[in-house]
Design a protein around this nucleic acid. Structure first.
Lengths: 347, 347
DNA sequence: CTGAAAGCGCTAACAT
DNA sequence: ATGTTAGCGCTTTCAG
C-alpha cells in the first residue's frame, strides 16, 4: 500500500536502518548511498510517517499555538509570524483556538494540547490560572507567551507601559492637556493582561505630567472598531468645552472607530480633536492615523525561535522587549488655542 | 517517566487492551472497570500519545488547513469555522500557510502535508495546478476547498456569479446605469478563482441589462482597503459628468476604501455616489455599507463536517452553495436625477 | 560505512 | 468482559 522505508530498502538492497539514516542525511552514510536512496524514495513516492517517527523519537516536530480568539488583527499577524518560523524549521503548527466564551477552554488544555502532539506551546496573550499552569508544567513542554506578560512564563512582547507612555508623551508634547483614553476589556472576556497594562500606563503617564485623569473620559471600546465608533460618538456628543482635545486609543481598530465618529459628528481631525492608536494596523496607514506601531509578526517569529531553541535544549532566559515605534501621521496636531471659540457647526 | 497505558494496567491489575478499551469507553467493557481505569488514569496524570494511536490506527485525528495567506478577512473567518467544527469532533487542526509569493508552495505540498500527519485537507480558495492535484490524489486524503470552485475538487462556497448578479440587480433596481466595478487579482498573486468569477459575473449582469461595460471603469483594488482607497481616488478625480453613479466592489474591504476616497473627494454617499461591497465584513455594519453578505465561518464549518464525514467513509457528493444575503444599508440610493447639475464643491 | 534486533505506546484481531 | 499476541513505521543501540 503506502510506500514505507521498508520498500525502498528492498529496492535498493540496503537495510532499513541505512535507508533511515540516508533519508535524514546522516554523516555516517556514503554520499552515493544517500543519493541512491533519495532517488528511489522519490520514484516510489515515499512519504515519511510523522507518527512513526514521533513515536520512535519522542519528537513530533510540531508546536501548538493557542489563541483566545482568532479573528483579531494582533493574533492573526502573530500567528503568521509563528507559522513562518516554524515552517522554516520544518515544524508543523497545530492551532488551538479557545474560541471565546463558547469554547471549552478547560477541555482544550487537557485533551488535545497535552496529547503529546506537539513539542512546545506558544500562547497568544493568554493569562493562565493556577490549574492551567500546573497542567502545562506537567507536560514538560517549553512554553512561551506572546503579548503577555504572563506570570511565571517567558514572554515576547512590547513594553505596554512604555507604549502608552510614548503615546501620551506625543500628545502632551503637542500641548494637549485634555486627553481621553479609550481602552477596555477585550470583548471576548479572555483572560488577557494587555488591556490593564495599557490603561495603567496611560494613567501613570498622564499623572506624571501633572494632568488629571477624568474617570468619565476613560472609555471602554472593547478593542473593536464598532466599540471605538460608539465610544467616539459618546465622547463627541458633548459641548465643545467639555470635549477632550485628544483621544488616545489602546488599539488602532478603536482609533479607526473614533475617527469615524468624529467625521459623523462633523469634527475635523486633527483640527478639532487629535486621535491616535496603538498597533500599526495597515488601515491606519491609509487614513493617516498616528500610532505607536509594533510588529506582531516579528514577535511571532521571535517566540517560535525561542521555543524551538528550548526544545533543542537551549537556554530559557528572558527575552528582550519587542520594539515599538511612534509613527506620526496626520491625525494628531496641537490643540486649538482658544477652546470654546472655534468649532461650532462643523467646518 | 511518562505514564503510559501500561502503568495504569499494572496499577489496576488489568491488561493493556482492557485499559485501552476502557479509556475509549468501548461498550464491551464493564462500567465499573471503565470508572476504575479512568480514575487511575487521572491520578497518574495519564496523557495519551497521539503518535502511538495514530501509528496503530492509521488515523491521526487531525486535519490540515491550507491557506494562501493568513491575514485576510475571509480566510481568518473560515479558519475559525473549520477550527470550531474540528474541535467539536475531537480533531486537531494543522495549519499550512503558503504565505504568499515568498512561501515555498511546492515544498509545503510535499513535505509536511503529505507527511501523514493529517487525515484530510481543507484548502482555502486555492486553485491547484496539475502537479499539486496529482500529488494530493496520491495521498488518498479527502480534500475539500472553501471558496473555490477548484476543478476536480469538492467545494463549499457561494455562487459568485449569483453574488455579483445580486449586487448589480440592487444597483440597477435603484436606477443606476453608470456602474463602476472594483475587483482585481488578490495582491498576493495566489492562484484563486474568485476574483475572475466575480468580474465575469459583473460583466454578465451588466450586459444582460443592456448596459455597457466601460473598461476604464473596471478597476483593480487588489482586494484590499488601500487598493480600494486608491481606486476610489482615481475614480472620483474626474468631472462629475464622467463619474459613475455607483461603484460595485468585489469585497467589503475595497468598498471601505472607496468610501474613504469619496469622503476625501468631498463626495456624499449615497448622495453623489452609491457604493456597495461583497462579504459582510463587520466594519461594513459600522459604516452602513450595503453589501451581499456571506458567512465564511459557516462555510468553514460545513467544509470541516463534509471532510470529516468523508474520512469516516461517508459519501463525497457535491455540496450546496453557501447562502448569501443582500444587506441594504445606507451607502446605496437612487442616483441624482439631473446629473451635472448638483454636486459642485461638496455640501 | 552498513546490518540486525529491539523497541516507542498504542490498537486490533483472536482467543478465552 | 478481559487477556494474548502481533504489529503500525520508524529510530537506535550494538555489532560487524
Amino acid at each position: 500500500m503506502h510506500t514505507g522505508i521498508q520498500e525502498i530498502a528492498t529496492v535498493t538492497g540496503l537495510s532499513k536502518s541505512t535507508v533511515s539514516r540516508a533519508l535524514r542525511g546522516m554523516p555516517t552514510v556514503a554520499d552515493t548511498t544517500i543519493d541512491q536512496v533519495r532517488r528511489v524514495a522519490d520514484e516510489l513516492g515515499y512519504v515519511p510517517s510523522s507518527a512513526a517517527a514521533g513515536l520512535a523519537t519522542g519528537r513530533q516536530r510540531a508546536v501548538g499555538v493557542v489563541v483566545p480568539v482568532i479573528d483579531r488583527w494582533f493574533y492573526v499577524k502573530a500567528l503568521g509570524g509563528v507559522d513562518a518560523e516554524l515552517r522554516r524549521a520544518g515544524h508543523d503548527l497545530v492551532l488551538y483556538n479557545l474560541g471565546g466564551p463558547g469554547g471549552d477552554r478547560g477541555r482544550a488544555f487537557r485533551r488535545s494540547m497535552l496529547r503529546h502532539r506537539v513539542d512546545a506551546l506558544v500562547l497568544l496573550s493568554l493569562v493562565l490560572d493556577e490549574t492551567e499552569r500546573s497542567e502545562l508544567e506537567f507536560t514538560h513542554h517549553p512554553v512561551i507567551v506572546i503579548g503577555g506578560p504572563a506570570p511565571g512564563l517567558r514572554n515576547v512582547g512590547v513594553d505596554d507601559l512604555a507604549v502608552t507612555e510614548s503615546a501620551v508623551a506625543h500628545l502632551a508634547g503637542l500641548g494637549h492637556r485634555e486627553i481621553a483614553y479609550l481602552g477596555g476589556q477585550d470583548e471576548d472576556g479572555m483572560n488577557v493582561a494587555v488591556p490593564h497594562l495599557r490603561r495603567d500606563g496611560f494613567v501613570e503617564a498622564v499623572r506624571s505630567r501633572g494632568l488629571t485623569v477624568r474617570e468619565d473620559r476613560m472609555l471602554d471600546g472593547r478593542f473593536s472598531f464598532a466599540g471605538g465608533a460608539a465610544a467616539g460618538a459618546y465622547l463627541f456628543d458633548r459641548a465643545a468645552s467639555d470635549r477632550p482635545t485628544a483621544v488616545s486609543c489602546a488599539s488602532d481598530e478603536m482609533a479607526l472607530g473614533v475617527l469615524l465618529a468624529a467625521a459623523q459628528a462633523g469634527l475635523a481631525v486633527p483640527g478639532d480633536v487629535s486621535v491616535m492608536g496603538i498597533d500599526g494596523h495597515e488601515y491606519g496607514a491609509v487614513v493617516g492615523l498616528t500610532t505607536v506601531a509594533q510588529d506582531p509578526a516579528a514577535q511571532g517569529r521571535a517566540a517560535a525561535r525561542a521555543v524551538l531553541a528550548e526544545v533543542d535544549g537551549g537556554s530559557a532566559g528572558p527575552l528582550p522587549a519587542a520594539p515599538t515605534e511612534l509613527v506620526v501621521r496626520t491625525t494628531t496636531a496641537p490643540p486649538r488655542v482658544q477652546r470654546g471659540e472655534a468649532a461650532r457647526g462643523a467646518r
